[in-house]
């Protein structure tokens, strides 16, 4: 049993948890994930490790309510226990294995979409601790689902926040901001501040120079990563993505997480979760992710409406 030490509502249906797991906290590295199983009958859900505190023996995860299990998870509070928390799984981020000289040659941009800002955070925090400069583009649907902005501001990196509905920051999506940065046009782009006042980009950025990145890390939904990769490919920036495929055990046993990387069959839990984004067939990944959509929707309906949810679908015997 693993105790919830801290819980913070980040935004609508988005919660941050700090969970006790000493063994895991001792060795977790940026880029890795863990698996949570809430109770006896729960499913195993993979979640990226967003932070860790080796001294306190805790790990941090961010959970977005998307189905029955995550809804149950977000109903838990400080002091409650999760039955199973196991990890760290997957490999540490490519950036972590590079030495300082290698890192200094990198002109790095992190591109995070929505919840992707959580898995990007430990990598950014690590680079920051190594004294490496880097840029971060955070993209959200709107101002209300904005998360971790303060944490990123504290890292003192160049931060470019954008929203798809232009309710805050630059105009999204993230690919738009990336293009503006690489063409040097960000200085003239509109930027909406917290008060809703529109200013020019140059008033909120440190430098208006054209950016010449040679390393991008894009993390978000498969759709977001697909488009980020199309853009970085056009711009000639090698791009690492972190894949969140379906998984059961997460320890290299079930093969549910398999995906094609170029011509090779890879397992996300063993070979990943980071891969060369330009080699991923995102359309096939997106279709695979939707594999259990019907079952998931049914489970959520059942959780929300109990035994009154039956509509004669013929699937659950009700």
């Amino acid at each position: 049993m693993y105790k919830i030490i801290k819980k913070r509502n980040l935004a609508y249906k988005l919660c941050l948890y700090e969970i006790e797991n000493e063994r895991l906290a001792r060795v977790a590295m940026p880029g890795q994930f863990l698996i949570v199983k809430i109770d006896d009958k729960g499913e195993r859900i993979p979640l990226t490790i967003c932070d860790y505190d080796r001294d306190a023996g805790t790990v941090t995860i961010v959970v977005q309510e998307v189905g029955a299990t995550t809804k149950k998870m977000n109903e838990l509070n400080v002091g409650d226990y999760l039955q199973d928390v196991v990890g760290p799984l997957g490999n540490e981020s490519d950036l972590i294995s590079m030495n300082k000289d290698e890192l200094k040659d990198k002109k790095i941009v992190f591109i995070a979409g929505g919840l992707g800002s959580a898995p990007v955070y430990p990598q950014a925090k690590y680079l920051s601790s190594q004294g490496i400069d880097f840029d971060v583009i955070l993209g959200y649907k709107n101002k209300d689902v904005l998360i971790l902005e303060k944490e990123y501001r504290d890292l003192k990196c160049n931060l470019y926040v954008c929203t798809d509905d232009e309710s805050y920051g630059f105009k999204g999506p993230v690919t738009n901001v990336l293009k503006l940065l690489c063409s040097g046009k960000i200085a003239d782009a509109d930027y909406k501040d917290t008060n809703g006042k529109v200013v020019k980009g140059k008033e909120v950025i440190k430098s208006s120079d054209k950016k010449k990145y040679n390393h991008a890390v894009a993390i978000g939904s498969a759709v977001m990563m697909k488009f980020a990769c199309i853009t970085t490919k056009e711009l000639g920036i090698p791009t690492v993505v972190s894949m969140n495929t379906l998984m059961v055990d997460g320890t290299g046993m079930c093969g549910a997480c398999r995906l094609m990387v170029g011509d090779d069959l890879k397992f996300c839990c063993i070979d990943g979760p980071e891969f060369d984004g330009h080699k991923i067939d995102f359309d096939s990944v997106i279709k695979r992710q939707a594999q259990y959509k019907d079952e998931e929707s049914r489970a959520l309906l059942k959780l929300n409406e109990g035994n009154t949810h039956h509509g004669g679908c013929g699937n659950c015997g009700g």
């Binding site: 009958k41 729960g42 499913e43 029955a68 059961v248 259990y292 079952e295 998931e296 489970a299 659950c316």
Partner: peptide, 9 residues
């Protein structure tokens, strides 16, 4: 089993 959360096809 209906009372367990993991889906199976």
């Amino acid at each position: 089993r209906d009372d367990y959360d993991t889906p199976i096809k």
